[in-house]
Design a binder for these strands. Structure first.
Lengths: 194, 194
DNA sequence: GACTAAAAAGCACGACCGTGCCAATCTTGA
DNA sequence: TCAAGATTGGCACGGTCGTGCTTTTTAGTC
């Protein structure tokens, strides 16, 4: 990896961390330069615009998410075990990966009313992700762990909701019961689907 | 109501609408002045700081939320009917009240990592709200509509999650199935609690 | 080690930010 | 009706934003 590429990756890692805390709108080139000990113009040269920086930051977040959630989930045995692994890996992402919490939640809220490339990229991400959850749930159906009448998309919707509830409850309220609640609700969901 | 108070209310209504679209951080005094056809300084004089503007905007949002969700829910008959009314009123708030979507979701994501009065106010709001949901669910238990072993807090967590899932799915993805999914998941939750 | 291309910094710009001060205008109560 | 006070506007400030242009420094190749 050339020097430039290495620097860029380091910048983007810092950008993901910063965006998770303050959001993509408040992710400022000046602050990012300060954090990475670079000059504003030196940093800016790696991206040709702020929007490009935001897009590449989002993409870097996606890579990290894949490493922490998607890949480990896919090595779990097909069926309900993989569904459980999905929850646990997702909770690792929610609690340990980024100081400021999931960047996709942040970005979704910021850009859901703002047409542009960021919004488009987010729509692709979230659509893919919903489909992934539904696929994992569908596997549990075809393996016989879930009842045949379980709608994988409906399951994905409910599971998404549990993680969102955890995200908000844990981050804003610092509720120590959040983990217990999300696991409890998940077990209820599993029971209703088995 | 004095002239000043009327103007202030009009400003705050516009502020709630603007914040729902762009967020509280990007809620700028200049833009708000433009939207309300006032001078920046004339508008600013009503609030002594931007933080005060944000706080009063949040409070105005809370008033509207009370009018649209809380009060109509409390006139429904105790028990499961009130639980159902809660969902429907909440969905009205989510879909019709504000062009940019629920301001509390926006604010929560923006301030969950940012200590200050905004965060404190949000924590109070969300705590109260969770308790309200739990109380309504608890009423369904004491009325015999829900099983006695249903934990109202756990129910509130799951219901919060459903609304969050709806919020994100409907706003970002414009998924026309979002309404169906949230109602379907809600019925499943009701069934599991009855 | 010299040459070249890449990377980083220096510097400046116009725009907009939040905020203060002071003058003008409008409301209100006696 | 008129004075007092509340409300609004004009203007300016220091700061930060994103973004170009030019120069200096660094890294990679022969």
């Amino acid at each position: 990896m050339s020097k430039g590429a290495a620097t860029k990756t380091a910048i983007l890692d810092e950008a993901v961390s910063l965006a998770s805390k303050v959001g993509f709108g408040a992710l400022t080139i000046g602050q990012l330069a300060e954090q990475t000990q670079m000059s504003k113009s030196g940093l800016f040269a790696h991206f040709k615009s702020k929007e490009a920086l935001q897009l590449e930051t989002l993409e870097r977040g996606r890579e990290r998410f894949t490493d922490i959630v998607v890949r480990p989930t896919l090595v779990a045995p097909r069926g309900i075990q993989r569904v459980r692994a999905l929850l646990e890996n997702w909770l690792v992402w929610e609690t340990e990966a980024l100081e400021g919490g999931c960047v996709f939640v942040t970005a979704s809220v910021e850009f859901d009313d703002q047409p542009g490339e960021m919004r488009d990229a987010l729509v692709r991400n979230q659509t893919d992700w919903s489909e992934f959850i539904a696929t994992v749930a569908g596997t549990a159906v075809s393996e016989g762990d879930f009842r045949p009448d379980v709608d994988p998309e409906q399951f994905a919707f409910a599971m998404l909701g549990l993680i969102y509830a955890f995200h908000h409850t844990a981050r804003l309220l610092h509720d120590p019961q959040a983990l217990g609640h999300v696991r409890g609700a998940f077990e209820q969901l599993i029971r209703a689907s088995s």
